[in-house]
Nucleic acid binder design. Structure first.
Length: 501
RNA sequence: GCUCGUGUAGUGUAGUUCGGUCCAUCAUGACGGACUCUCGAUCCGUCGACCCGGGUUCAAAUCCCGGCACGAGCACCA
């Protein structure tokens, strides 16, 4: 019975259906898994804090949610979670920035766009409902005091206040009669729950800072778990896709939904993403760096904001396929920027014009039968991009100092050889397999600046470039050297920003 | 401490629900080659992985038990 185990079974199967044992090469399932439970329609949401523009990290949420909305004919809600005016105060300009970032990345505006701060009347209504139905209470413990209760599972002395007293204290809080830290609204769950994070979690706190959108209208503000839970219900959100650090948030919110008799949306999670060759930037650290002058602004090339990436020349579709290929696994991943850059290169290479840029120029004289002009294609595989025309009358060319060898080929122009300290033209046709280098006719060189990050610094390197009509905003490929974006292009100033190899 | 989650090639993934079609997919990377007037593009090839230990079974990446590693939550941040 045991002998020839798998082989035995294989033979048995072969007797029944010979084709069943043929090996079929496995294939990879392409694309994201479709959403489940979509019969009632699909409403998704992306909910950033408007304390700055969107970062590369945020873009995962935009891309994945938008992808599902398109595939399930659903709607996407852009919701500004701006209910904290103290720890992560909203930036008034960020609301528009985020909408622009969203539109740049997805090619369209969100179906619905709301600010939590403007929805306060709704949240307040539910806060009152929570209290009057006995599902919440005003807690006057300090956070340290409550922590002890949470850990020891012993209810705090405020837990059993009568509803009337809770409502009375609530109205005092609403009217500014209490100071931040004096009191908080908690959702009554169960102090003996095994997961400490879920025990009587906080829903509202007192904050009296001016809110950039609604001013000084409110003395109390809901916390994420409450505000988000209510708003998801109000918007009819069907699926939530969030980081797995918010798993306990889901569990807290389900407890609240149970109180109200609602059904919680389907929830999917993804793990953390860190970029290898890039430090971790939180929106608040970026903001500090900008305020203190370390960075030039939110679009500084050293910052991982979408603003910066757009400015540097990333194609939105590269970011899109990068995230959809990664999918929504719960694994924490550390990726290299090279992976993104590889996707971006593939997107931009077919349309990027080739331009010769020389960082460390050295001029050489060519003697012999030098043609009067040179014609080089802007793109080796895409003739529709046209040609570059340069005069070579003087017979002088500029090349990269490191390319200075006795036998070289000036790309698309001529083979030259050093004979007794004198470069002579051997042939205009490619005559052997000597090194091919990029060059510029001395008749048409222009000064140029290449801006690139170097560690934490941003350096401006002088260089020369061929005299060609480029337009600002175009991404070019510097021959043999990688991609760059044209930032300025006039007789006064020619500036390129380094993108990637 | 309590709770939750995750472990597949260098990196990122497919497959794990329902064990055999998996001597494990695809991309990127590295290496080699072809082609090309860029170190670009294109094409071909090679390399390389189921966290560990038991168990169940004819058969385990997949099921069970036990470890280990990493991450997260227990904020009056989101």
């Amino acid at each position: 019975m045991n002998e020839n185990g798998a082989d035995h079974v294989r033979r048995e199967i072969e007797n029944i259906d010979p084709s069943a044992v043929n090996r079929v090469r496995q294939e990879k399932n392409a694309g994201l898994k479709p959403l489940e439970n979509t019969e009632g329609g699909v409403v998704l949401r992306f909910a950033p804090n408007p304390n700055g523009p969107l970062s590369l990290g945020h873009s995962r949420g935009v891309v994945i949610n938008k992808h599902y909305v398109e595939n399930h004919d659903g709607k996407i809600v852009l919701r500004f979670d701006d209910t904290d005016t103290v720890v992560k105060p909203p930036l008034v300009e960020a609301y528009d920035w985020i909408i622009e970032d969203f539109e740049w990345l997805t090619g369209s505006k969100p179906d619905i766009s709301i600010k939590a701060s403007e929805r306060m009347p709704i949240y307040l209504k539910y806060a009152e409902k929570l209290l009057s139905e006995g599902y919440g209470y005003v807690c006057e413990c300090s956070s340290d005091e409550f922590k002890k209760h949470r850990m020891s599972m012993v209810p705090c002395p405020h837990r059993n206040r009568p509803v009337e007293e809770n409502l009375k204290l609530w109205s005092i809080m609403l009217n500014g009669g209490k100071e931040p830290g004096d009191a908080i609204i908690r959702v009554k769950t169960d102090m003996t729950l095994p997961n400490p994070a879920l025990r009587d979690w906080p829903a509202w706190r007192i904050q009296k800072n001016i809110h950039p959108v609604v001013g000084d209208l409110y003395n109390v503000w809901p916390l994420l778990d409450f505000q988000s839970a209510i708003e998801d219900h109000e918007q009819g959100v069907t699926h939530i896709i969030r980081g797995k650090d918010l798993m306990d948030s889901t569990r807290k919110q389900i407890l609240l939904y149970d109180h109200f008799g609602w059904t919680y949306p389907e929830t999917l999670y993804w793990g953390r993403v860190s970029i290898h060759d890039q430090g971790s930037f939180s929106t608040s650290t970026m903001r500090e760096g900008i305020d203190s002058g370390v960075y030039d602004g939110w679009d500084d090339p050293r910052l991982p904001t979408l603003m910066s990436m757009r400015k540097r020349g990333y194609h939105p579709n590269a970011i899109k396929s990068f995230w959809t290929e990664m999918g929504i696994t719960q694994k924490d991943v550390a990726i290299s920027l090279d992976s993104l850059n590889a996707v971006n290169s593939a997107k931009i290479d077919p349309t990027s014009r080739r331009i010769s840029v020389i960082m460390d120029p050295v001029e050489i004289d060519i003697t012999g039968d030098v043609p009067e002009k040179a014609v080089l294609p802007f793109h080796p595989d895409n003739q529709s991009l046209g040609n570059r025309h340069h005069s070579t009358k003087t017979g002088r060319v500029v090349i990269e100092r490191v390319d200075l060898e006795d036998e070289i080929r000036l790309k698309d122009f001529a083979d030259i050889s050093n004979v007794e300290n004198n470069y002579q033209i051997i042939s205009t046709k490619k005559s052997d397999d000597r090194k091919i280098i990029n060059w510029i006719s001395a008749d048409s060189i222009k000064d140029c600046t290449l801006v690139m990050p170097d560690g934490v610094d941003l350096v401006r390197k002088g260089c020369v470039v061929e005299d060609t009509e480029l337009f600002v905003g175009e991404v070019i490929q510097m021959e043999r050297n990688g991609f760059a974006k044209v930032m300025e292009w006039s007789d006064d100033s020619r500036v390129l920003h380094w993108l990637h190899r």
